[in-house]
Design a protein around this nucleic acid. Structure first.
Lengths: 221, 221
DNA sequence: CCGGATCCTTATAGATACTG
DNA sequence: CAGTATCTATAAGGATCCGG
């Protein structure tokens, strides 16, 4: 931390730690679990290896993430958030909820599969209706498992569901995103085969409609 | 926005807008109301005029703040948050609550009077005990008014209380901060004259003790 | 004075190539 | 695979100056 705000304000302190370019996006990529160097590079289009290395080193020093060597046969080096680093979750939620209401800038560009799924957690924070179900969502090669209990999202993780889920979805990332955004009605997407659904479609409907109400846009000015 | 992340993720979008150096601290200084260029410069030690001008221009373009000319006799140019810009409040709360738990970096340096008072709002978000009172706090030349209703902080603004408040406090910024941090017990500070209190000391005690419980530190690692 | 703009220097990020 | 090394482009830091 050569360039520092050096204030006694906790906000300035946070920005000294995660306020540098790319830092918060590196952390974002670790929200759903450990990642390898090249996964991070792939998920952060435009970051250069030198900057990624530097950020990983700094964030490790500050205690936001740690480096861990997986034992053989995996034998990979991964980065994962510390407990304190995982505490940035409310910051991500707040930033996402604010950014989505931007009156001037559009929301265009690529989104990682992780981010699409995390959008669900961000905009579906409060219980909406009382239902419970387990889900497994496959987007390309990425698989996620979800659990809703009493209308509350209690689990969102990478990897397949442990037991047979109530609903099994397979789609492209774009198709899934279109349904979540409300651009593509669920029934249309299923009928046209853009979403392949096995199990209880009503539970899926509840899931994709849950986050909808938050996503409104602020007036300009 | 020359350097942009250009992602479809709302977090990346937010960072394109307020992620540049100094941007969020400029916004922070406007949380309690309009400020002049000069005030911002004074509140942001280390910022250069060129950078401040650039940030103000960008933040105005994005719709985070607006420039306004006060009519005579004030005849000053001030910057104030738009409604959307004020929507960054949850981001500040999340950052402050996270930063204060930093396991490695200490919290040292100067803090503006605004920030000290806003810390009260950040760490006293939920009702703690059931009481109501009005306050007027004078720190050096800065005066603030506060209102607690049913154990909830419902008003925090610059300027004196409209009607006679239940409690009137006068202190230096440092002395007030020491009491809020718990480093200086309220009774000691009052007895020694570091805090000059007029009115109901018990209501003041409730106020300064309300935010205490949040401020714990996370374990390192 | 206030509200900046200008000029020069230094630090950080982007681009590309390369190595243990 | 997981980074370094090198070079260039940009942005921030520091000081000074200018117009209303």
């Amino acid at each position: 931390m050569t360039r520092t705000y050096g204030e006694g304000c906790p906000i300035a302190l946070s920005l000294d730690i995660v306020g540098e370019r790319w830092a918060l996006l590196v952390v974002r990529e670790l929200r759903l679990g450990p990642r390898r160097y090249r996964d991070l590079q792939a998920a952060l289009p435009g970051i250069t290896p030198a900057v990624l290395s530097k950020r990983l080193k700094e964030l490790e020093e500050y205690g936001v993430l740690r480096r861990r060597e997986l034992p053989p046969p995996a034998a990979a080096r991964v980065y994962e958030l510390t407990e304190w680093g995982a505490g940035l979750e409310p910051v991500f939620q707040a930033l996402a909820r604010w950014g989505v209401r931007s009156p001037v800038l559009p929301l265009t560009g690529e989104v990682s599969a992780d981010s699409v799924m995390l959008g669900l957690r961000t905009f579906f924070a409060e219980p909406v209706a009382d239902w419970s179900a387990t889900y497994e969502v496959t987007l390309g090669r990425e698989v996620y498992r979800l659990r809703v209990e009493a209308g509350r999202l209690t689990e969102l993780a990478r990897g397949p569901a442990a037991a047979a889920p109530d609903v099994l979805v397979r789609a492209t990332k774009a198709a899934w995103q279109a349904v979540l955004d409300g651009a593509d009605p669920l029934d249309d997407a299923v009928a046209a085969g853009r979403l392949s659904v096995t199990g209880d479609v009503d539970s899926l409907r509840r899931l994709v409609e849950a986050p909808r109400k938050i996503r409104t846009r602020a007036p300009a000015g």
